[in-house]
């Protein structure tokens, strides 16, 4: 069994990788990918806490709540990627680019 703190550190590291990716990328699809990595890090954290709770308290609903929320995050991530990619396609139709810096029509 791994140690909880190690797993949490892995999650934190993945999350920060995601943050770096989001900040440094200008290709919108890659930006979305980094966002997915951040969500994945959160999932790892939720599952860790679920397992940690199950080791301390033996009620079924509480122990699995973390896993349930992981599923919710997956569902929300799927919805988000669906919308995000649709927006990218629409943007590409309009401007022929997937550059994050090209979509500046909302400035000022």
């Amino acid at each position: 069994m791994p140690e909880p703190k190690v797993v949490l550190f892995l999650a934190a590291f993945l999350f920060c990788c995601g943050v770096y990716g989001v900040l440094s990328r200008r290709h919108l699809i890659m930006l979305l990918m980094s966002l997915e990595l951040m969500l994945n890090a959160i999932n790892i954290m939720l599952v860790t806490f679920s397992r940690h709770w199950a080791g301390k308290n033996h009620d079924m609903l509480g122990s699995h709540a973390g896993q349930f929320f992981t599923l919710m995050v997956m569902a929300v991530a799927a919805a988000e990627v669906g919308i995000g990619l649709a927006i990218i396609v629409a943007l590409y139709r309009r401007k022929h680019t997937a550059d994050a810096d090209a979509a500046t029509d909302l400035k000022n």
């Binding site: 989001v22 994050a100 029509d105 400035k107 000022n108």
Partner: peptide
């Protein structure tokens, strides 16, 4: 408020990350 808006997604992302 709109005087602050540059329209660049990255700037909003920076604001978000720094806030975090």
């Amino acid at each position: 408020g709109r005087k602050m808006q540059t329209g660049y997604v990255r700037h909003y992302l920076y604001a978000f990350a720094v806030g975090m």
